[in-house]
Design a protein around this nucleic acid. Structure first.
Length: 833
RNA sequence: GCGGGGAUGGCGAAACUGGUAGACGCAAGGGACUUAAAAUCCCUUGGGGGUAACCCCAUCCGGGUUCGAGUCCCGGUCCCCGCACCA
């Protein structure tokens, strides 16, 4: 018979595949039956399948979100079919500047806007057919959630990991807020384009830098995507080197080693400037010292003659935003008039200030070695400072002139370095530090990782749970007074004051000191959104219980997260903060594990028709359109089919028809399947090969090849004019289920089952059936493929050669006795003549 | 500059620890069905040569290792993504 499918022809023997009706039916039935519920307390084989929760934008679910969610859902559904109790929760990262700016633009309060967006997201997530147990939902803007975000803050505070510091920050005069360096592009605010300024502000910081080494070491132990681990390593940025201290000399320099006269509070000691360097071996080439314009000693060491120009230079540096300053290659600076002694030579070298030295890295001061550092070289050229060679490449002599810095850190021999001349760079590094130690030098590692600034001068975030008391200093809000509710205010627009809009509400910020009871003032800044998301995975299993941030028994049972899937755009900050918070809570004895996720995999990026998707280009995929036309099942399956999940792919509208046809054929095959007769041998072999392939591919997220194999199978199944046997289609429906859950449920019901297909287990394959009876053995002559012979899989080398020689087209290439025969079992025979 | 990933038909892509390059899908062309179109079904489809059986060339470029290289090694080009005056 000829199988007709989706056509609405009246004579069609079965109903056409109507994805919309099927999806509506099963979405309703899953709710009705509680199919997606997991009993978190009774679960026997808990499996925590987590995806990164989205920011609920007004535009609705982005196809990039859906891509991640679908990949995650397939993994979760598959585990469920393996017999696990799978918790696949969903939540919303709904605080933050995104929501707030959008609210300002629309003139709607974020408190009104966010619930609306969340409702829309929920609707879309349900239409996508995700296996969400909504009883374990999280919303970061819900006081029942951020109560515990505040608790995380005070817990860190009590452990001495939170402090206040004034520092230079990027300030957007338009958004009226502090920006992270990542939010500044080319000196402008990435969001509004306003030119960013530098401001000094008091902010709250988390001491994540105390954990630099620990967080670096932990990376060796965890099963995460390599790309993510590498990004984190780079971000932590460990460099090994030395801290070397330079003594500041009398302003005249030539007058010898006498200390500079100093101000009252520091009068007893000489000034000394420590520097960090990765090249202690080049100290003989250190011809000057440079300190950052913000260096605390700069003012004190500057001579009266130079004071005016140094001040002017500092002013100038301040006006620049931090990013431009960091990226412009132009070298500028000013001489302080002071000199320091090079601890290796004892000779005086001038001290300069320049903005190419950053206060926030190392000690904010460097020893400049223009011969071996290009930046120092450029600076020396600019100001006519001496350049000396202290490392020679092979072929160079001590006097070979330098036209640019020779920076090679591995090869080369020291020259012009007194008793160290002749040593290799590697050996000299050690010896010189030893020789200068302990007074002038010590070996030291430095990290790029900075402390985490958690203050935001905005409205739409959890208030930082601190109270400022004139007598007691900053005090954490006691646990029993949490949450500090974010008040509903209408004037939430930030202004120029540099403080949060909350600071305009006296009735809110006036409070009593929790320690002494005196009048005190609440902290009016809110915390960074990244704090909301740094611990949310701990909360899910325990929702809705409110007696603790996370229930001890449930946490023991469900955490750490078994599988976490998300985008690499969060490779650094979010995932690093999760590790940090988990580490700290572990040290506090609150959780037994130190790593939040057993396994993390980064998914790829979806582009469209070869181009990045963006609102301005108008090429954004709106999932609703596809849900309405081709159905969620085909859409999901297509998303997974376009490329390797971990690499992403190119979304093309034309491609969806392929998977839709596949589902149509599946539908048709099951409709006409019969119980009569016997299943076909070859079809069953292919089926078992397919089960094997899909079972291997899903856990490694090779969804595209799993789908391809199922397509191959359906092509085999539909060959010829026979109706398929039920035994040939039933397992296929199960294989398809994680990808296209609605249609699989429908067909499963059609096959006579009353329970959900997701509780039907997973088909097993028969290894004996997978193996073929005969194989096509490829024959190569001198490595060149000439054809193939049909033989038994375990054919001997001699028999294979005999078959090859007897073969019509292959045989004629065998002109003499072979020098060598290479038989690769099941693959090929190479005849070397 | 540093770090990561990549380059395979007209297109998205397959190819397990080196073993028939292009599975699967899209698009295109042809055919069946139809009054017609759509849908569906069947066939063809990397390039070149040959009536044909077949043969030659082909995985960014140039070398190398190997019986055999898309895959491994050395050198180079181009593209994408991070980070970036980090001493």
């Amino acid at each position: 018979m000829t199988v007709n499918t989706a056509s609405a022809r009246p004579e069609s023997p079965y109903p056409p595949y109507d994805p919309l009706a099927v999806e509506r039916k099963w979405q309703a039935r899953w709710i009705e039956r509680g199919t997606n519920h997991v009993d978190v307390r009774a679960a026997k084989r808990p499996y925590y399948q987590l995806m990164m929760f989205p920011y609920p934008s007004a535009e609705g679910l982005h196809v990039g979100n859906l891509y991640a969610f679908t990949g995650n859902d397939i993994h979760g559904r598959w585990h469920r079919m393996q017999g696990y109790d799978v918790l696949e929760p969903f939540g919303y990262d709904a605080f933050g500047i995104h929501s707030e700016n959008f609210a300002l633009k629309q003139g709607i309060h974020p408190g009104t806007l966010i619930p609306r967006n969340i409702a829309n997201f929920r609707r879309q997530v349900d239409r996508a057919g995700l296996m969400i147990d909504w009883r374990h939902q999280v919303d970061t803007t819900d006081p029942a959630y951020y109560k515990w975000t505040q608790w995380v803050f005070t817990t860190l505070f009590k452990r001495g990991l939170v402090y206040r510091k004034g520092g230079a920050v990027n300030w957007c005069p338009n958004d009226k807020t502090v920006l992270a360096n990542e939010q500044v592009e080319g000196g402008k605010c990435e969001r509004c384009g306003a030119v960013v300024e530098q401001r000094v502000m008091e902010q709250w910081y988390f001491k994540i830098s105390d954990y630099s080494e620990q967080l670096l070491k932990d990376l060796d132990e965890i099963d995460w995507s390599d790309s993510t681990k590498i990004a984190q390593r780079n971000w932590i940025g460990k460099s090994e080197g030395a801290r070397i201290t330079f003594r500041v000399l009398d302003p005249l320099g030539a007058a010898g080693m006498a200390a500079v006269s100093v101000t009252s509070e520091m009068s007893s000691s000489e000034y000394a400037i420590p520097v960090f360097t990765t090249r202690p071996d080049t100290i003989y080439g250190a011809t000057f010292l440079v300190v950052a314009p913000e260096h605390p000693l700069l003012d004190a060491i500057t001579t009266d003659e130079e004071r005016a120009s140094v001040r002017a230079y500092q002013e100038r540096a301040k006006k620049q935003d931090l990013v431009t300053r960091k990226t412009s290659k132009e070298k500028t600076g000013a001489f302080t008039g002071a000199y320091a002694a090079n601890p290796a030579t004892g000779k005086p070298i001038p001290i300069w200030t320049a903005d190419y030295v950053l206060m926030e890295y190392g000690t904010g001061a460097i020893m400049a070695v223009p011969g071996h550092d290009q930046r120092d070289f450029d600076f020396a050229k600019q100001y006519g400072l001496p350049i000396e060679r202290v490392v020679a490449a092979s072929g160079d002599t001590a006097r070979t002139p330098l036209t640019s810095a020779y920076e090679d850190n591995e090869n080369g021999t020291l020259v012009n370095s007194e008793q160290f001349s002749g040593l290799s760079v590697a050996v000299a590094k050690k010896r010189i530090v030893e020789a200068l130690a302990p007074v002038h030098a010590e070996a030291k590692a430095n990290y790029r990782l900075h402390d985490w600034c958690v203050s935001r001068q905005r409205y739409w975030g959890p208030p930082i749970p601190m109270v400022h008391c004139a007598k007691c200093g900053p005090q954490p809000v006691p646990d029993d007074q949490l949450p500090v509710l974010l008040p509903h205010i209408d004037d939430f627009k930030p202004d120029d004051s540099g403080v949060s809009p909350l600071a305009r509400h006296k009735d809110w910020y006036e409070t009593k000191c929790p320690k002494c009871g005196a009048d005190a003032r609440r902290e009016t800044d809110v915390s960074d959104t990244f704090l909301d998301s740094a611990w949310y995975f701990l909360r899910y299993p325990s929702v809705p219980d409110q007696s603790a941030p996370f229930d001890a028994a449930l946490t023991k049972k469900w955490l750490p997260v078994d599988s976490y899937i998300g985008g690499n755009e969060h490779a650094v900050l979010h995932l690093l903060y999760c590790r940090f918070v988990t580490r700290v809570l572990h040290e506090a004895g609150l959780i037994s594990f130190w790593s939040p996720f057993k396994r993390f995999r980064a998914h790829g990026l979806i582009i469209r028709e070869g181009a990045k998707m963006s609102k301005s280009k108008g090429n954004v995929v709106n999932p609703d359109e596809y849900f309405d036309t081709t159905g969620a099942d085909a859409f999901r399956t297509y998303l997974m089919f376009i490329g390797p999940f971990e690499e992403g792919g190119d979304f093309r509208d034309s491609g969806i028809s392929g998977v839709r046809r596949f589902l149509d054929r599946l539908w048709a095959s099951v409709q006409v399947a019969t119980k009569n007769g016997e299943p076909d041998r070859d079809v069953m072999r292919k089926l078992h090969q397919t089960i094997k392939k899909v079972s291997e591919d899903i856990p490694r997220l090779s969804y595209n090849t799993a789908i391809a194999m199922m397509m191959e199978y359906i092509n085999v199944l539909r060959r010829g004019e026979r109706a398929p046997h039920r035994a040939e289609v039933e397992p296929l429906v199960q294989l398809v289920a994680p990808f296209a859950p609605h249609v699989a449920e429908e067909l499963w019901e059609l096959l006579g089952y009353t329970k959900s297909i997701f509780d039907s287990g997973w088909p097993a394959y028969d290894a004996r059936l997978v193996a073929a009876e005969t194989i096509e053995l490829v024959v190569q002559i001198n490595g060149k493929t000439r054809g193939s012979v049909t033989v038994a899989p375990d054919v001997s080398q001699d028999d294979a050669f005999a078959a090859a020689r007897a073969h019509a087209t292959v045989g004629k290439f065998i002109t003499g006795e072979p020098k060598k025969l290479i038989l690769v079992r099941g693959r090929l025979l190479n005849v070397v003549l």
